[in-house]
Deep mutational scan, measured.
Amino acid sequence: MTFKLIINGKTLKGETTTEAVDAATAEKVLKQYANDNGIDGEWTYDDATKTFTVTE
């Protein structure tokens, strides 16, 4: 399955996707991606669209 991350950061905005077997696995990968890029904020997840959003 494809999961999307929408980034609403102070210095970085955009989106990325990852392939994962489930939402929990995708969340780990996407949170690591955000952490690697210095993004720390509030996370939400929409199961209907398989989209995570992080807002700083």
Rank of each mutant, 00 (worst) to 15 (best):
K10I: 14
V29I: 15
I7E: 01
T51I: 07
A24W: 15
T49W: 04
I6Y: 07
A48H: 11
N8C: 06
I6D: 03
L30W: 04
A26G: 04
Q32K: 13
D47P: 14
L30F: 15
L12Y: 13
Y45K: 01
W43L: 03
Q32G: 08
T53M: 10
T53I: 10
G9C: 07
T18E: 04
A23E: 10
A23P: 09
A24R: 13
T11V: 15
Y33A: 03
A24F: 15
A23R: 12
K50C: 06
N8M: 15
T25S: 14
Q32L: 09
L30R: 00
N8K: 12
D36G: 05
T18L: 10
K50R: 13
E56F: 07
M1F: 15
M1T: 13
D22K: 03
V54D: 01
V29G: 04
Q32A: 13
N35Y: 14
T2L: 13
L12G: 13
L12D: 09
E15M: 04
K10L: 15
I7Q: 03
K4L: 09
E27V: 07
A24Q: 10
T51G: 02
K13L: 10
W43E: 00
T44H: 12
I6P: 00
V29W: 12
T2H: 08
G14V: 10
D47T: 09
M1R: 09
A34H: 01
A24K: 10
G38D: 09
I39N: 02
T53P: 01
N37M: 14
A24T: 13
V29P: 02
M1P: 10
G38N: 15
N8W: 13
A26Y: 00
Y45S: 01
V29S: 11
E15H: 06
L30V: 04
D47A: 12
T44P: 01
K4E: 03
V21I: 14
V21M: 11
K13P: 07
K31E: 04
E27Q: 10
T11P: 05
N35C: 07
L5H: 00
T55Y: 15
E15K: 04
V21W: 12
Y45H: 01
I6G: 02
G38E: 06
K13D: 06
V54T: 03
E27Y: 09
N35G: 12
N37R: 12
L12H: 14
T25H: 13
A20V: 04
T2R: 10
V21P: 11
Y45F: 08
A23S: 09
K31C: 04
N35M: 15
E56K: 04
A26R: 00
K28V: 11
V21R: 10
D46W: 04
